[in-house]
Design a protein around this nucleic acid. Structure first.
Lengths: 203, 203
DNA sequence: CTCCACCCGTGACGATCGTCATGGGTACGG
DNA sequence: CCGTACCCATGACGATCGTCACGGGTGGAG
């Protein structure tokens, strides 16, 4: 019995390559492939695949949000996240979203086919090195609001901008940022953003 | 006559997929594939491929630097840059490095095979949308030193850090940064870094 | 030689930032 | 009820940042 797979990935070249390559496997069939996160749910409703392979960085909505919506709309479709960045926060978010698998694009192709088969058989598959990192790191020390403010701090320059964007007093923004900076062991707003982003705590 | 190709790309999964996929083409043979930029030259010296497919973002040295070295060490090997980011500065740098082709991973796979054949036949291939953007944008307005300082400003937080790293007076760093901020139309050091990085002027 | 662009540095000014202390409001668990 | 944690806000302080004006040095183009 063949495993029916949906492929969501924004890099056209990579998506095409994976589609043909997975199609070569005798027990795997790629029934649809999309390049945007907001097309995942509707495509899954139409094709009812056994399994959805989701990238995280995508236009529209990201793969994690797509996974969350997919779990509600089409619970019969299992989710495997395949992403470039080994951020532990991504892994946490993926697990919370009900994903059954989490792989890095650094892994060899054979591992992907294996993972697809295992997940289709009901198992869960997680990149081992990332699992270790996630366990040794723990969750985010930031409060929800601190996370919001720090997330708003990437890109938009001054504190006044962030305050306007969040309908807050500039002083409050400064306090939240100050707390975040200390908790992350950074010395600058920019450093704090980098650290939190690299750990995936800003998703 | 088959075209002998070397593949340099750090994402294992993507590299493997491209290798098998290109190998399926009757007139293309992938003779070697590496995952680090600093392995490109030695691999090309060993295998003497007709063409090298280089990613830009790679551990070791990046694809542009690899292209520069390759042009000196193994001039018989033509270079095609394949990258994720459509930054015009990348395109300029690639042309200056003597690349014969420049493609985005957003393009379909068929386009890559076509490009390989055209480049092997002596033509040059450039992503058309990027070529337009590059022409309408012009070169970097930053002086060499401003570029250095701005490049050192990403990551390392305070001005004092940058000054130490570049053996400069903090005042000089501030002046260079101030000039860069104004030339780029930014309002913050961070904004300036983002803008310059996004255009590929920090390479 | 004279311009001109770039490099490095200084000093000074106002604006912004990061830290701290303090306060009031809300929500949850003991 | 009381303690605790979080949210929002304010005020004040020193440090840093971005801007400007200025000067001396180098090297290439006219």
């Amino acid at each position: 019995m063949t495993i029916r797979v949906l492929l969501a990935e924004d890099q056209t070249m990579f998506r095409g390559a994976m589609a043909t390559l997975l199609g070569l496997e005798p027990d795997i069939e790629v029934v649809a492939d999309v390049g945007r996160g907001d097309e995942v749910v509707s495509a899954c409703e139409a094709f009812r695949p056994d399994l959805a392979l989701l990238d995280i960085e995508m236009p529209g909505i990201d793969g994690l949000e797509a996974a969350r919506r997919l779990a509600k709309a089409v619970p019969g479709t299992k989710v495997v996240i395949v992403t470039t960045f080994g951020r532990t926060g991504y892994l946490h978010a993926a697990m919370a979203a009900g994903a059954a698998g989490f792989l890095l694009k650094d892994a060899p192709v054979t591992e992907l086919a294996d993972a697809i088969r295992k997940v289709a058989a009901g198992q869960r598959v997680i990149d081992p090195s990332l699992a270790i990192a996630a366990l040794s790191e723990g969750a985010s020390p930031l409060t929800p609001r601190e996370t919001d403010v720090l997330a708003a701090a990437r890109g938009h320059g001054t504190i006044a901008d962030i305050a306007r964007q969040l309908y807050l007093s500039p002083g409050t923004v400064r306090n939240h940022l100050s707390a975040a900076i200390q908790k992350l062991g950074a010395r600058t707003r920019t450093e704090a953003v980098e650290i939190a982003e690299q750990k995936g705590w800003l998703v």
